[in-house]
Design a binder for these strands. Structure first.
Length: 493
RNA sequence: GGCCCCGUCGUCUAGUCAGGCCUAGGACACCAGGUUUUCAUCCUGGCGACAGGGGUUCAAAUCCCCUCGGGGUCACCA
């Protein structure tokens, strides 16, 4: 009832380790959409309780990724909010305080056993092949004794006392889930030494303090939920609603990992996937608009998204469909937009400098427009236009294309004749004029179109396919075209 | 292995909660045509699934049970 009447508050709580995984992006996407759809708040909290693995770079990468995808959060590190701080490492005092309270109420206990003893116990379990949930030997220690040993300086870990019974909860995606308590360890809330609380504990403390109403996260957290639910109960606090998203799978049907391909957002940014395509594709991993429409913008997504519509089964990540989606968005861009997106790739490939692009902007736009239908990714651009920057007498010929061109009888002669006609201006000067005039010219000579066009394309661009040839001639300029054609005639003779 | 979750075309999915409108729809991929000076775009068509077996019912992809298959998880990681 509480959760219904309060405004919706969702969060993502990534740990800043490694690169930004697509799974995190998708979880963020769904949380964000839910908040936006129902007028709630989307919170970012950095889960940096594992000091050994956290990195500052990684935290920055998460912030940058959300920003790039346009998933604006209402509260979070660097942005602040009514429940600051939003970095868990900065909230430890509060976590310890809550741990203290659970110790006092008997929901938790001090475990003085050594890590070595635990290892031995686990080894024994392993040997007997019958894994039983851990129940610390100090679980039933007299509270007074326990307190005194702690005061005497004996190190201990704080464990949660799992009661008998089972936990049953309603997952918004999966329906009712039941897990018997015999399966759950008396897990560690605060590590030995007393200053380092663990994830399963702090996540509840923080969600509680930040008044989170809905927890949407990956399915790998499903079996952890009872542990957390038990903490809510122990604190006497209402629990949020839970929904566990289906995993994103690799082609091996296992949790998406680097083994089967790129998994991080920066990988796809670097390859030149349009961001709206990434957004759209991620939205399709476990959710669909109406079963008919695959391409939709973020407004549409927000307008229709509901966590209840998310599917239960894991989604195999399909690179081919992702590529198609990329092309779909790339082709919808205006030439100006596309030029802007593609320019960095041209620069990186050392085809042009930023200054050169600026200086020849009208030309550059025409070039971009000419290959728009031929690209799926921004990174496809350099390969299509590289020939423009090669010396006229040393165009790099594609092997297959050259083989094809060499099959044409009289290739050198026709190229030379065409060059002459072109130079004399007998074919006109605009692409449209030249196309018509050239066809007439070919007919007069009794030649087939392919007799000229195949060798011509090779001479001009070195490629087997590409934009309209007369457009290419214009873009190249007549002198340069002539040089290439004559060089081609010589090379193909 | 225990426990938990899941199971519709190769892949993403609609349909499952409220059984009939499903001879199961869409998309990607693939194949075949068409358009085109080529490549691509674009257009048309094709291939292709209810994991299996039992029930319940006049009727099941939809409800129940079992089997099989896949995944997740079993830390003083998150």
């Amino acid at each position: 009832m509480d959760a219904m009447s309060k405004t919706i508050r969702v969060r993502i709580a990534p740990s800043p380790t490694g690169s930004v995984h697509l799974g995190l992006c998708r979880t963020a996407l769904f949380n964000w959409a839910y908040a936006r759809r129902f007028g709630g708040q989307f919170v970012l909290r950095i889960e940096d309780t594992d000091h050994d693995r956290n990195t500052q770079v990684s935290e920055q990468a998460i912030l940058a990724a959300l920003d790039w995808l346009g998933l604006d959060y209402d509260e979070g590190p660097g942005k602040g909010g009514p429940f600051a701080p939003y970095r868990q490492s900065e909230r430890v005092a509060r976590h310890l305080e809550m741990a203290q309270a659970l110790l006092a109420s008997g929901h938790a206990y001090r475990d003085f056993s050594t890590p070595e003893a635990l290892d031995a116990w686990r080894a024994e379990q392993e040997a007997r092949k019958q894994r039983v949930a851990y129940r610390g030997s100090d679980r039933d220690l007299d509270p007074e004794v326990s307190r005194r040993r702690a005061e005497a300086g004996e190190p201990f870990a704080t464990r949660f006392r799992i009661p008998a019974g089972e936990t049953r909860f309603e997952d918004l995606i999966r329906g009712q889930v039941t897990i018997p308590h015999e399966e759950i360890d008396d897990w560690v809330m605060v590590r030995r030494g007393g200053e380092a609380p663990t994830y399963n504990f702090v996540v509840v403390c923080d969600d509680l303090d930040m008044q989170i109403t809905h927890v949407f996260r990956g399915e790998e957290h499903l079996v952890n939920t009872p542990k957390q639910l038990l903490v809510y109960a122990a604190c006497g606090k209402p629990e949020p609603a839970f929904a566990h998203l289906p995993l994103m799978l690799g082609t091996d049907r296992k949790k998406l990992s680097k083994r089967t391909g790129d998994t991080s957002l920066p990988d796809y940014q670097a390859k030149g996937y349009p961001k709206e395509a990434i957004f759209n594709f991620l939205a399709l991993q476990g959710w669909s608009l109406d079963g008919e429409t695959d391409v939709f913008d973020r407004a549409k997504f927000v307008e229709h998204f509901d966590i209840r519509d998310v599917s239960k089964a894991g989604a195999v990540f399909d690179p081919a469909k992702f590529l198609w989606m990329a092309g779909e968005y790339l082709r919808r861009e205006t030439v100006e937009e596309l030029a802007q997106h593609v320019a960095p790739f041209a620069i990186e490939a050392q085809l042009m400098t930023a200054e050169a692009i600026e200086a020849r902007r009208p030309w550059f736009l025409r070039v971009v427009a000419s290959v728009q239908d031929r690209m799926s990714l921004y990174s496809d651009f350099p390969a299509w236009v590289a020939h423009f920057f090669q010396p006229d007498d040393a165009i790099v010929y594609d092997e297959k294309a050259e083989k094809g061109a060499r099959k044409r009888e009289g290739r050198a002669e026709i190229l030379l004749a065409f060059a002459e006609a072109l130079e004399a201006g007998r074919l006109g000067h605009t692409a449209a004029d030249m196309a018509g005039a050239t066809k007439a010219w070919l007919e007069d000579r009794g030649a087939k179109l392919a007799d000229l066009f195949q060798p011509l394309r090779l001479a001009l661009t070195g490629m087997g396919g590409g934009p309209d040839l007369f457009e290419t001639i214009e873009l190249l300029s007549t002198p340069s075209s002539l040089a290439r054609i004559r060089a081609g005639a010589a090379r193909l003779a």
